[in-house]
């Protein structure tokens, strides 16, 4: 188990380096001199430009720049923006917004997705199943930003059930955006659970459970669900990371000052360090979520061996 964990962490390193380097290279290959972009139309004195180039290692070859940046990043210093603010503090107020948003979305997709999936799986081929299946297909088919705008218009503006935008009203303002953000994954979770339930319903051990004379709810909860939900854990675990990096669209529609918006602005103002910093953190979250899921898998399914 420990050997496995260590090996997995070692395997993460090339992935982390690869992803961040790609982003780093891309960001610093953005056309136009970032220093000049920062200054706008006003010409900067050459000495200032030189100083800034020096400070951000802009004159080194790309690989060296990257190596220097990552060396600092691993000491917790993700660099400074061109405004002189550290990357960590520039986004300090933004992380909680995205985290809360992703969390609401995640809980929603977990609860609603599993419930709908179990319901459909137990009634496979019946009316309920078809409605749920059709509904999830529809959710996947309608682009998230259309769902977001429609939800905002109907539930926010017209019927005034939820706050229209912003984060002023605490957790309440996260409900609607969270549901919208989670809806896409909800459809996948529901389908995954449905298939898994339908497959496990035919398993021999389900027949054994009935032959043991167990009450119906016990057969379903202890024997069917426990087995059927194992594959869903993988999806849900990894999805928390995807929700955070995918929150961009929802944050834009609901005007929430989250990480996504921060990145968007950073990309457009060519603030490379900011983009790379955030990417590094997001990739780290994704990698660790993956590792935790894999370890959890072994706890849930005793047949899994870690070699």
């Amino acid at each position: 188990m420990w050997r496995y964990t260590v090996r997995r962490i070692l395997q993460m390193i090339p992935v982390l380096i690869g992803t961040t380097f790609i982003i780093y290279a891309m960001v610093f290959a953005l056309p136009g001199d970032p220093i000049q972009a920062l200054a706008g139309s006003k010409p900067l004195p050459q000495s200032v430009i030189n100083a800034l180039h020096e400070r951000y290692n802009l004159d080194d070859p790309l690989v060296v720049q990257y190596a220097k940046y990552m060396a600092n990043a691993f000491q917790g210093d993700f660099g400074e923006t061109f405004y002189g603010q550290s990357v960590t503090s520039a986004l300090e107020s933004r992380w909680p917004v995205t985290l809360k948003l992703a969390l609401v979305a995640w809980v929603f997709e977990l609860v609603a997705g599993v419930t709908l999936g179990v319901w459909a799986g137990l009634r496979r081929g019946k009316f309920t199943d078809r409605v749920i299946l059709g509904g999830t297909t529809l959710i996947i088919a309608v682009p998230t930003f259309v769902v977001a705008y429609s939800a905002q218009l109907l539930l926010g503006v017209k019927w005034d059930i939820f706050p229209v935008a912003g984060t002023q009203e605490g957790w309440v303002s996260y409900i609607l955006p969270g549901i919208v953000l989670g809806s896409f994954s909800l459809a996948f979770v529901a389908r995954l659970v449905r298939t898994s339930i339908a497959e496990n319903l035919r398993a021999d051990y389900m027949r054994t459970a009935r032959a043991k004379g167990l009450p119906k709810h016990r057969v379903v909860v202890r024997h069917l669900l426990r087995n059927s939900l194992i594959p869903v854990v993988t999806y849900l675990g990894v999805d928390l990371g995807s929700l955070m990096s995918g929150a961009l669209v929802v944050e834009a529609v609901f005007n929430m000052p989250g990480i996504g918006q921060g990145i968007f602005q950073a990309v457009q103002t060519k603030q490379g360090t900011l983009v790379v910093g955030v990417t590094t953190i997001l990739v780290l979250i994704y990698l660790f979520a993956n590792l935790i899921v894999d370890l959890l898998y072994g706890v849930l399914d005793p047949r899994i061996r870690y070699e």
Partner: peptide, 22 residues
């Protein structure tokens, strides 16, 4: 259901799949 396991019990062919793996 109360009869099953209690008064009448069953043994299946393939114990590996008939026992719950988890």
């Amino acid at each position: 259901r109360a009869m099953c396991g209690n008064r009448i019990a069953m043994i299946f062919q393939d114990a590996l799949s008939a026992l719950n793996p988890v």
